[in-house]
Design a protein around this nucleic acid. Structure first.
Lengths: 115, 115
DNA sequence: TTTACATGTAACCTTTTAGTTACATGTAAA
DNA sequence: TTTACATGTAACTAAAAGGTTACATGTAAA
């Protein structure tokens, strides 16, 4: 989970996923052609994505093909919907009311006292 | 989007969101009590979460109450489901076949030639 | 068997991140 | 009006992130 978020936290890496999503099987040089960055820098980004299993590779001869792997994103999706979506649905309206009309100083039901 | 992922990339910060989800309105000291970390460090984490709008605050007297804001996560959820879910659904099986049985050397339909 | 070229690795630099301690500020309550 | 205490800020350090250049390795094809 940590590696997935870390990998997704970089805009270059998200763009690489978009590229590989559109064109599965690209090699490092192909990907590097899209960026104003050295090949080695691109390789490091791809290594981060591979460590997060967002990219998987296949070696064919001297070439290494890269593929976008959607499974970690699917897992995040599952986590959010499992862990948060009920909270979202039930809490969102109450939360907006609570924050946006912050002039209401009467005590809120779940609010904690600071220690 | 970038700030959201950056904020979520840190396990401490995700834990803080879990804490605030469970106990809305906690102050810095309350949150810091959960961590083996200084109050200032916790404040910096909360600042990152606040910059990403994953946490919103309300000042009451000398206390500052923190609330988990689910909206950026909802937006990520929307982005993944919008942009990726169709791709997921249609591509996942084909992708698994393509990678896992990597002995099939016959040309794959969308695979690119390396430059 | 050279040659070309895609990839791998090493060494290095700069900026950001994550944390610390010390001190300053502002408000609630004694 | 002191006092207590929650929060804010400044200055610093160590490690990680993101990038570079130079060189090494391995395989396909001439």
């Amino acid at each position: 989970m940590d590696q997935t978020f870390t990998a997704l936290a970089n805009a270059h890496r998200r763009t690489m996923l978009d590229i590989l999503k559109a064109k599965p099987g690209l090699c490092v040089n192909d990907i590097a052609a899209h960026f104003d960055m050295s090949r080695v820098a691109v390789m490091k980004h791809l290594a981060v994505l591979e460590a997060a299993q967002l990219v998987v590779t296949e070696r064919v001869g001297k070439e290494k093909h890269h593929y976008f792997n959607v499974i970690p994103i699917q897992q995040i999706y599952d986590r959010w919907t499992d862990q948060y979506s009920r909270f979202m649905a039930s809490r969102l309206t109450a939360f907006k009311d609570q924050v946006e009309q912050q002039e209401s100083d009467d005590e809120q039901s779940q609010q904690q006292k600071c220690s």
